[in-house]
């Protein structure tokens, strides 16, 4: 592979001649993926909003009753169980995951922009009679896809942990004894309560970690775009001034 340096100011940009044939490019995949990712994110958030409203109606039904009525009507516990399972169980991680999908859509769109810059740059170089050369993939371009994927995986793991908490919440609150002062009366219920409290302590920070990773991927993608734009500006000036350092 031939490499050349586009001189622009004090800093040089490593470049290589455009390969005759390329395999599957990430920008082609991203071009197809950003719309489904965005649509999935919007659907997950919309589903979360509906679940939140349904949970609010259950909370309204349950918390409008006195302690005496609750103790005398065990069937009402299902309202509390639903509210706790959704609102204090799997809904927050699900919403984080929805936002993560939207942020992944942003990342894929940035990759598409990078692909457009590269392809357009090649066309311009050919149009002015120069040999098309590309910027050698900078470290930021190598890093952002795995960073984004890691963020999405963390958010998926937090949804799984949220479902575990939701199941524990359901088991705990479906017992009438959990509804009244004095708390759980069996070892299994005490274990459920312990799991709920311990998992919830780290579940929300985990969601923020996932979001942080995806946002870091976006920062890296934007840094790559800046580098590609500067490289192309340097290349256009080089060709216009009659120099072609691609050899």
């Amino acid at each position: 592979m031939t490499t050349a340096t586009i001189s622009r100011g004090l800093r040089g940009y490593e470049a290589r001649t455009t390969p005759a044939k390329e395999g599957l490019r990430m920008s082609d995949v991203a071009q197809r993926m950003w719309k489904p990712m965005t649509a999935m994110g919007v659907m997950v958030i919309a589903a979360g909003l509906v679940l939140g409203i349904v949970s609010a109606t259950h909370a309204n039904d349950y918390f409008g009753l006195s302690a005496g009525v609750i103790a005398g009507a065990p069937s009402i516990v299902s309202d509390r169980a639903f509210y706790e399972t959704v609102t204090n169980g799997f809904l927050p991680p699900l919403l984080f995951f929805g936002v993560g999908l939207l942020l992944s859509g942003v990342t894929f769109l940035l990759v598409t922009i990078l692909g457009t810059l590269r392809d357009g740059g090649r066309d311009i170089q050919r149009a002015v009679g120069g040999q098309p050369i590309d910027l050698v993939k900078p470290i930021t371009a190598k890093l952002f896809p795995p960073v984004m994927m890691m963020g999405l995986m963390v958010l998926m793991a937090s949804v799984v942990a949220g479902i575990v908490v939701g199941v524990d919440q359901s088991n705990y609150w479906l017992h009438a004894s959990s509804q009244v002062a004095g708390g759980p009366q069996t070892a299994a219920l005490t274990s459920d309560l312990s799991d709920i409290q311990s998992i919830r302590a780290w579940l929300q920070p985990l969601g923020f970690v996932g979001m942080g990773l995806i946002l870091s991927g976006i920062v890296l993608a934007l840094a790559t775009i800046v580098r590609a734009l500067r490289f192309q500006a340097g290349r256009v000036v080089q060709l216009a001034s009659g120099g072609d350092a691609a050899a």
Binding site: T38, V42, G48, L49, G52, I53, Y83, L95, V99, L103
Partner: peptide
């Protein structure tokens, strides 16, 4: 309890609308 049940999803829906605007 009633308000907290829909407050977080609504806040996320707002963020989602902003992110869609960015996209």
């Amino acid at each position: 309890s009633r308000t907290m049940a829909w407050l977080l999803p609504t806040a996320f829906a707002g963020i989602a609308a902003l992110l869609t605007a960015v996209i």
